[in-house]
Design a binder for these strands. Structure first.
Lengths: 200, 200, 200, 200
DNA sequence: AATGAATGAGAATTCATTCAT
DNA sequence: GATGAATGAATTCTCATTCAT
């Protein structure tokens, strides 16, 4: 009665599972979770519809896996950037680079971010994963910043708040295009604000 | 061929249309757009399924209308608060009040906000409406602030940015509950940041 | 419990009933019986949907009435033409005129003919009316022809058969447009055939 | 977005598709196109409603396929009959046989013929298919007749006209039952008329 | 008589999931 | 492990007909 989901050990199987996840990633990005059906995922992955249920317990399970690779695509470039920084770091120099990086990440992943974030409201597991993502980023960045000599007082709150601001701005920047907003001006504001957070 | 949607003139009809919108509002809030079906909306509104299509062209059309009342629920308490303020306004006093208000709004509307925002990624009309609403809020608030003696330079960018920050924080505050975040500390940061935006 | 259908006596009412029938006639012609809904008929007739059921027991009842005015539109011009004929009539002269007339009738009424004929397969009353129409035409024309000196032997069969041929041809002529058919040649064949039927 | 209709290759699948077409054929015959719903077709075919949409894009698509097998049921017995004939064929002997055959075909297929013809008025694709089928019959029969030594002048027009006449008569014969018509007499007329068409 | 809003059964269609091969 | 045909519950939407006003 219990549903057993294959834990693929062989390379062939892992490869196939990844193909499905990637197909899901693409399709969820393109037309959202509800706009995608499992048959299409299978087709795009080049496998049969039946085998999808050999690797995943249900459609939502694919989503969870997609979410995981999405998280990597977000976290990795950020960490890589921070790891390249030299001590002592000059916050005025770093912030613009971070802004550029966050925008870049947002551009690459905006659609899937929307699709996944949309689900976080109605799906506990998805929501949890998102929170975990934020946790990871916040904690790792806090660590790195403190190691580079940034004042550690309330560092988690500072980092988290800064990340919120940057993400929010990246979203504005990539999507909305309100006519009456000068995004160059706004970018300066964002930059100065973040710098101030870490300044004193 | 042509779809005719009743444009209700009489009070009775307007009332009924509103009942449907409210039922939609509630259900979309509770279980999201895709978790709701038109039969349920009708049932909750106390009407037949058929008449739903007398007032709305389709399910999405209900969403669009829900989006509109959502705006009111968001914008009205904010405007009311601002209208009570005395000129010249002391930004240090106002910001904490605004934070409280935004948190309150977020608490009341968090689910529906998610649901609507979710759709804006995959539905052009919903997205357009969303942007329209953001525009309205930004422009109205900008207007009020300038009238109260706030420096009008880059006011749209300032207001929009401040709204992003506040919304982002309210979201954090209401939802996420990261263990390592002291929300009282974060709240102070947010307040000071917003105050700084409008200070000089 | 019984459904009473108003038998309109006053002119205003009769006019209104006719408006509905005409609206039905038009719409059935344009989009067929199943492509038309009663709300549209009412709208086109300039009356409310409710009152339609004051004059007609149901949608099919409108169809029956439409069928009746259709029959008149078919029978009248044919009889008018035959009544103008002079004794002794020259069959070679008459037949081309009849062909022209039948084609004209077909052109004016082809759509509604299709729509009505379509129903005759599944609706006994409609079928009966159609048979009645054929009866009327056959008997009246037979009468006229005999009075004009045409040999009365098997006259009903001759007339009916001739009408079948003419109708069939008119249908071909108005509709089908098979590329490989020279309709001028076919028309000659039809004419000669009909003439032969009445010749000996 | 895209609708993919299975193109069944395996015998099992083809068989199932045929079952659905046959169920459609039966039901359209019995109660017409609008009197039939897809659930009933599925039930009659002994399959689920879902799989119907695996083989057909929609209900109309079933109709189109039914139209095709209808053609076969009409054309095959006719062709078989003609193929048995000896050259040079004696038209006086052939025509009565053809009349019998056409009546037989009509008896077997009258309802479906009605149903299909009905739709051809309001559905372009059905209409096109219908014309295509008539073309096939005309061209094949013309070919056969010429090969059997019949004068090829205006052969398409002759065949088409003869088919119209025969069909029209078969329809009369099978359905209408006008009291005042002696169908034996009429049958003689039809026979002679058709013979005359091909005589000189 | 007249209105047109309201009803609700019924229709077509979709799609996550299962299952025979 | 793999296939893809098959399932059938669920969903959106329509429309002939009724009914409160």
């Amino acid at each position: 009665m219990k549903k057993t989901v294959r834990q693929p050990q062989q390379e062939r199987s892992i490869e196939k599972k990844n193909k499905i996840i990637n197909a899901g990633y693409e399709l969820f990005s393109e037309v959202g979770y509800y706009g995608t059906n499992t048959a299409e995922i299978a087709k795009r992955a080049g496998v049969s519809t039946g085998i999808v249920y050999g690797y995943f317990s249900d459609k939502r399970d694919i989503l969870i896996c997609v979410l995981e690779i999405y998280l990597d695509k977000v976290i990795e470039p950020l960490l890589k950037m921070f790891n390249k920084l030299q001590t002592p770091l000059n916050i005025e120099d770093v912030v613009p680079k971070v802004i550029d990086e966050v925008i870049k990440i947002h551009k690459r992943n905006n659609k899937i971010h929307e699709a996944l974030h949309a689900l976080s409201g109605s799906d506990e597991a998805v929501n949890t994963k998102f929170i975990e993502l934020e946790d990871q980023i916040t904690l790792k960045l806090s660590d790195i910043l403190v190691k580079h000599g940034i004042n550690g007082e309330n560092i988690h709150e500072k980092v988290h708040f800064a990340m919120d601001i940057l993400q929010s701005f990246a979203h504005e920047y990539v999507y909305d295009k309100h006519d009456y907003i000068d995004y160059f001006v706004m970018r300066e504001m964002v930059g100065n604000t973040v710098i101030n957070i870490f300044k004193d």
